[in-house]
Amino acid sequence: MWRAIASNGLTMLIVGLFLLGGVILWGQREYSAEGPLDQAICLRVPSGSTMSRVSRDLADRGAITSDTVFRLGAEYSDRTQALKAGSFLVPEGASMAEIVDIVTRGGASTCGTEVVYRIGVTRAQVQVRELDPATNRYVERAAFVPGEGEVPAAFAEVREKSDTRYRIALAEGVTSWQVVEELKQVDVLDGEVGETPPEGMLAPDSYEVRVGDSRAELVAEMQQRQEAILTEAWQSRAEGLPVTTPQEALILASIIEKETGTPEERGVVASVFTNRLEAGMPLQTDPTVIYGITQGRGVLGRGLRQSELRGETPWNTYVIRGLPPTPIANPGRASIEAAVNPDDTDYIYFVAKTLDPADGHNFAVTLDEHNANVAAYRRLEAERAND
């Protein structure tokens, strides 16, 4: 009798172990299998949250097939205590294993709301925007110019959230003075900048920051990026250039940056200035005259006068030959690369095609061709004046 009971017990134990093994194998497959999401979602993990709460949220949103398997898988892989607060983009079809990795690997949030402090050539703007997981594109919720009008309620709302991301975006062609002055107004940063960095030595780019980050350290990062870009471009420069040092290349790049906002024109504009330098001709570019007047402290806001075109400043390339003594703005990577690898053309002149800068320029080899292009531009100016 006891032998029969023992035999039946052993059989049941074996069956139980077999079933348990099957359940474990099933759970492992479920944990690693493609998930049910047919569209990406943004998962918010509040500070102090737990893996249990996250699993329930994911199950409620149809992102996982079993919150139990999700929790056990996270615990088995020793990731439960590594849960990070933030907003995370969970892609379409993500497995439970992939989601656990997303919410525990650390780093910045990958979706949700962000505040972008844009430092532009003519003005600064604060933009509140949110990532749409379906399109993976940001949608603007609010935007305002600091110091002008009321601050939108959406800005105050997102500032209260611990997982809001912050970004500083520098436009190509801003001056170092503009950057320093605008950084003083960015309320998530701390500390003083100190001296204004040398003109041209801040890389126009997007910089993610956190509340309490140092202004001085951010500026140092901007300088490091620009130094790296300039060094890389200089090492791959074309032979026989009239610019003989990285600093001269940076000066020329800043002029190219201010003369055209059309990406496909940068190399052509660079060729015009290269040809002029090689021929010993003055560059005769208006942005250098403007810099001699403003010293990069703000926007001139009007047209140049004939007296200013003739006025002697170190930057007035209608008066001096060669390059001015410093850059006139902070050029982007594309303009730096154009300065050291200009297109191969015979162009000596250029003038705007239309009154819209986005339409680019007409280029010319001879003065007669250039005068015809200038006459066409003057007619457009006259038509606008008559209208």
Rank of each mutant, 00 (worst) to 15 (best):
A238V: 01
D346G: 10
V179W: 02
G22Q: 05
D57Q: 14
W234I: 04
G303W: 07
R379G: 01
D344M: 08
T196K: 12
R118E: 13
G298E: 01
R310V: 01
V128N: 00
S52C: 01
A358S: 14
S162A: 15
T113I: 11
L13G: 02
E157M: 01
D187Q: 10
P204S: 02
D163E: 15
S47M: 06
L58V: 08
S87T: 14
V45Q: 09
E239A: 15
G35N: 01
R237C: 10
A385C: 00
K353F: 04
V151H: 07
L241I: 07
E369V: 09
L83K: 05
I293N: 15
D368P: 00
A372Q: 15
N371E: 12
Q39W: 03
V179I: 05
T175L: 06
G27I: 01
T231L: 11
I328M: 08
R129N: 04
Y318T: 01
R302I: 03
I229Q: 12
M201K: 06
A334P: 09
R61C: 00
G35A: 04
A156Q: 11
V158I: 12
A249K: 07
T231D: 15
L277M: 08
L309W: 11
G191C: 02
R210T: 07
Q28T: 02
T345N: 11
Q223F: 04
P242R: 05
E157L: 09
P327Q: 02
G106P: 12
P152A: 04
L323T: 04
E160N: 10
R56D: 15
T135R: 13
P324W: 13
E232G: 01
V209W: 14
P91M: 06
N386K: 07
A134P: 06
R378K: 09
N386I: 01
L131W: 03
V145A: 08
I24K: 04
T122L: 14
P91I: 04
D346C: 02
D387G: 13
V121H: 03
M281D: 07
F144H: 07
R105Q: 15
Q127V: 15
E195N: 14
E248D: 10
A169F: 12
A156R: 13
L13C: 07
N371H: 12
L13K: 06
P133R: 00
V319Y: 14
L43D: 00
G120A: 03
A216K: 15
Y377A: 02
V180A: 13
M281F: 05
D163C: 09
I348E: 06
R159P: 00
Q295L: 11
G261L: 04
G296Q: 10
A143S: 14
Q295S: 12
A233L: 01
T175S: 11
A169S: 14
A334F: 08
V54P: 10
Y318H: 02
K258V: 04
S95Y: 06
L83I: 09
N275Y: 14
T345M: 11
T135L: 03
E114I: 11
T345Y: 12
A124R: 14
L10V: 11
V188S: 10
G112M: 05
A143W: 02
T110V: 09
A142F: 09
T260I: 06
F350S: 00
P36E: 06
D356V: 01
Q28R: 09
D387F: 08
S162G: 03
G191L: 08
P327Y: 08
R61L: 03
I348L: 15
Y347V: 05
I102F: 10
L43Q: 01
A352D: 10
G16N: 03
R266Q: 14
T313P: 13
N386D: 13
A382G: 01
R215D: 11
Q235R: 12
